[in-house]
Write a protein that binds this DNA or RNA. Sequence first.
DNA 1: TCATGGTTATTGATTTTATCAATACAAATA
DNA 2: TATTTGTATTGATAAAATCAATAACCATGA
Lengths: 308, 308
Amino acid sequence: MTLQQMEYIVAVDKYRHFVKAAESCHVTQSTLSVMIQKLEDELDVQIFNRNSHPVSPTPIGEKIISQAKVVLFNVSQLKEMILSERQQESGEVKLGVIPTVAPYILPKLFGVIAERYPGVTLRVTETRSASILEKLDKAELDVGLLATPVGRPGLLEIPVYYEKFVAYISPGESLYNREEIESGRMPTERLWVLQEGHCLRNQVMNICDQRSGYSSIYEAGSIDTLVKIVDENGGYTIIPELHLAMLTEAQKAHVRKIVDPAPVREVSLMIRQDYVRERMLNILAESIRRILPEAMIDKRLKKFAISL
Amino acid sequence: MTLQQMEYIVAVDKYRHFVKAAESCHVTQSTLSVMIQKLEDELDVQIFNRNSHPVSPTPIGEKIISQAKVVLFNVSQLKEMILSERQQESGEVKLGVIPTVAPYILPKLFGVIAERYPGVTLRVTETRSASILEKLDKAELDVGLLATPVGRPGLLEIPVYYEKFVAYISPGESLYNREEIESGRMPTERLWVLQEGHCLRNQVMNICDQRSGYSSIYEAGSIDTLVKIVDENGGYTIIPELHLAMLTEAQKAHVRKIVDPAPVREVSLMIRQDYVRERMLNILAESIRRILPEAMIDKRLKKFAISL
DNA sequence: TCATGGTTATTGATTTTATCAATACAAATA
DNA sequence: TATTTGTATTGATAAAATCAATAACCATGA
């Protein structure tokens, strides 16, 4: 029993005439005759009555034809579904990602997208929050991936994951001896932070003890550099959870959990309010989440999230 | 796109392994590989990701597989439907038919049944009502076809059609000059009727004017004979509508409508109350009705029906 | 880095199937 | 009885599915 045979019996039922039905199927009448007989043999039922003029389906043939139509309908649905999916799952997306997220997400994201959505082309710009927001405004970017909430008029935020912060401490520091560090007990005197303009800098400022004045005068350009500075010069810094994977075993020993409360940043996809490719957004969100550990997607972390 | 290919992708999705899936489909792994690639080429989508281990469907592949399952389910439904229909539409039926119905129904009934329900074998006995009822009681017959209502305990009646009576009058009779004859104006003096035992005899008695005494002393064994008797000896008789088709053109001129009210007999299928093959009954009823003019199936005639 | 085992892809030969053109056959019509 | 209209049959051919063998790929542990 084949789809082709089903098309043939549906055609003969429609035209009540083998020759006309054969034409409509773009085959000869003999093909139709043979194939329908074959089907009748296989199912061991007579579908058509060739004695009556014009040819007509038997009672059971009518039921077979009607079910065959259901089958063919679902096949056509399948094909249409593919067309519509492909349409929605293809095209170029201009994505802006902030530097303190990019190194943890992008390398795998390209692979996942290429593998799962071969029709999608990512065109990524790594740049700081302010620049991403501006470019979204000007529609120079389709989507941004950055720390939120931002609350910018005309733009929408779609939270994707929540990332905890940890402290990276030089063995010389007094904090080093604690197993965990309470958020309120982090002096800013020996703190290294990113350059002005990185949103992570502001977040770090929020975490640390505001009573003490800032005295660390060196500002780094990337988390990697920050860590190296601490290694060389002592002091401490605050780094996002995902950076742990990039530390050596020796460096991991310098990491301390921050608690009470554990600071968390919310990372979201951002789009213009008039962005219409909802499906593309889902693809991005799904693909990013696929890269991350389950726990980081948990919305319950949101309550600890800090803003700029 | 073939059903076979759909089975293949469903199997690969199930086993996540080409070799195992191939086994389950009773083909080699190379066949599966080639066929699935062919399907992917035709649809121009990647259904599976062969890089991941174990092999896994792409997002669109998942949708395709799930729709393919729907199609395959439809096909299996079709096959099961055929099995169940064939079961219900086959077997032998012992049918009893009264003599004043048999000649009009049976010749075509055999043809219709053979053509539309090749699995059904009719075994027909032509005999009078009382004998049919008896044999139904003793389960020597499965179904009876006779004039109703009978109202016999343990038996069910399923009305199939309604047949008018007409008068067949010798040109010598005074009634012959009327275009139509009122039921009440039919004297029994010159009336020929069937032998005792034919239910039609009783029905005719009911139609005719009861005030006059019966004087016709000859009783015929069949409608055909009755008509010939009238042709040869004068007088008149009453015959069922379906007999008209058996008259010559000359004889048809001797036919007069009976009106006010037009007498009608109800013809029904009868079965034992415990008869279980409901489907077979429908087949018989449908096939009989297929033989008759539309008008005779009209239930509105029931109100004119006469009983024994 | 190199084998190794497990997995899928490729290939050429072979079998099976679908299709066609031509023609036979059957039924209805004139 | 011829004729027309329609379906079945048949033998040849083209297309396809399948197989066995083997290549290519890839993760993983030595």
